[in-house]
Amino acid sequence: MSDVITTDVVIIGAGPCGLFTVFELGLLDIKCHVLDILDRPGGQCAELYPEKPIYDIPALPLVTGADLTSRLMEQAAPFKPQFHFNQMVTSLEKCGDTDFVLMTDGDLVFNCKVVVIAAGGGSFMPKKPPIPGIDAYEGKSVFYSVKKMEAFRGKDVLIVGGGDSALDWVNNLQPITNSMTLLHRRDEFRAAPDSVNKMRELVAAGKMKLAIGQVTGLGGADGMLSSATVKGTDGNSFDVACNTMLPFFGLTMKLGPVADWGLNLTENLIAVDTEKFETNVSGIFAVGDINTYPGKLKLILSGFHEAALMAQQAFRYINPGERLLFQYTTSSTNLQKKLGVA
């Protein structure tokens, strides 16, 4: 267990609303640590649609998910937020009258005065194909990610999927496996052309197999896979011998541990007021897609507004008794100094 990190605010989620929360809190001299389950900032903008254009960000007639993320990172940079990626918050508890203790699956522990949940649609988790009996193999011979390549040395590996993750791991793991089979539902791949070409060269050289079809069943015992049953495009089934399977069907969002923190939920969304965007637990706020209130619209611009208002109340918790002076970035030398422009 690492040392406790003490800070003003922990923001859960490094998507656009989490990033803009850093900015709004920063203007009020409040320091933040930002956690995200992904390995980079941007949330849905990074994971689901980095290259798709967004047309409804004020003053940006067209911006891609990736560009919006990098601009928000730039805007937040003067406030030196500290990011912790690949971290899922597993517990959040009140500690004493004013503090919260927050723990992650990566054994990080935070002590803070205010928590902002900006977790969008929830935690991104790998999609688990609903193949009958797959649960028994998960973690033993079916894996949804590659943590250490060495674990796959000498194995008979079946990789399922046609995107970049599937193709990258086919090409990276093939040299160390005993046998490699790639299974995809069609003989077309949406992965980078380079990776697809490399895979096709390996197939042509007889170093791996490519099968077209979809998995319908698994064979094996005690969690150890011995084969996968595949339905081909002609409707006929065949077996692929393998002792390890890696399905790559992308990520999906699940609310996850947030449901266990004693917050009032409405249809899996966190209920907040519309003055401070605070939950039923004082000191815990929710902004962006994860919150709900009468009239809520799941738009990035709504999350930005919510962040600005919640920051005001966060200031009062962090600086009890201090007067909060409303200032504009256009005219306040004080704010401009914080932004590093004055």
Partner: peptide, 10 residues
Amino acid sequence: EDMLDFAFDV
């Protein structure tokens, strides 16, 4: 068609 690669039992 591309996105259906991420669906199951297509």
